[in-house]
Amino acid sequence: MNDKEQQGNGSGTASGEEDRELVERAQKGDTRAFDQLVRKYTPKLYGLVYNMTSNREDTADLLQDIFAKAYRSLLRFLGKSSFYTWIYSIAVNMTLNFLKKRGRRVILSLDDVDSGIQNDPDFINVTTGHSPLRDVGLHELQKRLNEAMMKLSEDHRTVVTLYDIQGLQHSDISKILGVSEGTVRSRLFYAHRQLQTYLDDFVK
């Protein structure tokens, strides 16, 4: 397990309670409650879908489909799992289905990057520190990372996105994907090993 701070997933927390309340209101027909849920989960799901597709247009289309499906299925959501896990499961499944249909036809498009990255020690380390590519530009780094991600299998890319980029815990990933924690760890291990090869010059 890495030393990064794992983000809260919203289950069993104040965020989870808030979600439950919003879901109940949305189930009773309050569309504003559903809009609030959309606003809350759009940044997280955008990150998930974008890092799995590496294309902004596809991400926008998929997010529409994901939230539309969630809205249609909301009455069937019984609250056995958290809304967070439920909406993530829908997003992952729909994105994997989309990727299977899309095949190898990939057009990479880069997202805007928050200016805060300039102060991140890891970014400084990669671009100016001990890295042999000390003059690498931000866009070059983005492009290399996206290309490396797209070389992974869809299952491996999913766990890397959820764990390394989104900061979810193994247990949450196993619930979302419907696999054991051991499978999640195994997929992560092999994905990291592959990425080590693809991004060799960055991590030396």
Partner: peptide, 26 residues
Amino acid sequence: DDNQISRLLALKRYERMPEGFEDQLI
């Protein structure tokens, strides 16, 4: 090595969706 890869990938968290994306989506 594992940590290095994870830290490198974590830099992707700085990527942001386009301005006004949420409103457009809703």
